[in-house]
Design a binder for these strands. Structure first.
Lengths: 117, 117
DNA sequence: CCAACAGGTGACTATCGGGTCACATGAACA
DNA sequence: TGTTCATGTGACCCGATAGTCACCTGTTGG
C-alpha cells in the first residue's frame, strides 16, 4: 500500500542477507545459483530475497540461456542518500555538543527534582 | 540473534512511520504525546515505534516530570553511511556507462540466440 | 489530599516476512 | 530426442511485528 519508491529500498536494506547479496554483487554480477552457494539458507530463500531487491530496483536481471545474471544497480542507494539520509549530516556535526548539553540539562533537572523531593 | 548494531538501525529505518518520527525530531525534541498527535495511529503504536528507535540508538530519551522528551541522535545514521552505504558511491558514478554496456551485450546475445535458433 | 493528566505495560489479534518443499519450465548438449 | 541442469512458482508453516485495548504508574497543581 505504501507506493513510495524509497520505502521499498529501505525495506530491502533491512535484511542482513540482502545486504550481503548486494555486497557480493558489488564485485561483479552473479547467477542465482552462485549466490545461493554463499548462504546457509536454501536457494528458494535467496531467490525471494532477489525478488525483493529487484522490486526495489537494487538488482537488475539479465537472462542468458538457462542462467539468470543478477547485477547491482546502485542508483536507489544513491537516491535515498540524497533524498533522506543527508538531511542528518548537518545535525551529526554538532551532535557531540548537543549530547553534552543534554546530559548537563538532565543532571540539572535531576538535581532540581531531588531537592524538591 | 543478529547482534550487528547496524542491523538494528537498518530495521528501524525500514518503517515509514519511524522515518517520519525522525524527521519530526530533526527539527526539535518532542514529547511522546506531541509526536502521537502527528499520526493517525494510536499513542501506543507510536510508543512502540519509539522503543524500536531507542533500541537502535536513533532516539535519546530524557524524562522531565511526567513528560518524556524524545531527542534525535543522528550518529547511527552517519555510521551506516560511513560503514556501508558509501561503498556504493563509486559504482554509482559509472552506473550509466555500465548499464549502457549491459544493454548492448544483452542485445548482441539476443541476436546470437535468434540466429542459432 | 486528590483529581486530572502524561506516560508506560502486558496481553491479545492480525498481518507480514522469511523459510521450506513439491513441482513446473525451459535451455544445453550428448 | 531425451536427460540433465539452472531457474522459477505456488502453497504452506512459523516467528516477528504493527496495531489495539484495558489497566497501571507516577506527576502536577489546586
Amino acid at each position: 500500500m505504501n507506493s513510495d519508491p524509497d520505502d521499498a529500498v529501505f525495506r530491502a536494506l533491512a535484511d542482513s542477507t540482502r545486504r550481503r547479496v548486494l555486497d557480493l554483487l558489488r564485485e561483479r554480477p552473479r547467477t542465482t545459483g552462485e549466490l545461493s552457494e554463499q548462504f546457509a539458507t536454501s536457494r528458494f530463500a535467496v531467490m525471494k530475497h532477489l525478488q525483493v531487491l529487484v522490486a526495489a530496483g537494487l538488482v537488475l536481471v539479465e537472462r542468458r540461456g538457462r542462467e539468470r545474471w543478477n547485477r547491482l544497480n546502485p542508483a536507489p542507494i544513491q537516491r535515498i542518500q540524497r533524498r533522506w539520509l543527508r538531511r542528518f549530516d548537518a545535525l551529526a556535526a554538532s551532535a557531540q555538543l548537543d549530547l553534552k548539553d543534554e546530559i548537563e540539562t538532565q543532571a540539572a533537572s535531576a538535581k532540581r527534582r531531588r531537592t524538591r523531593a
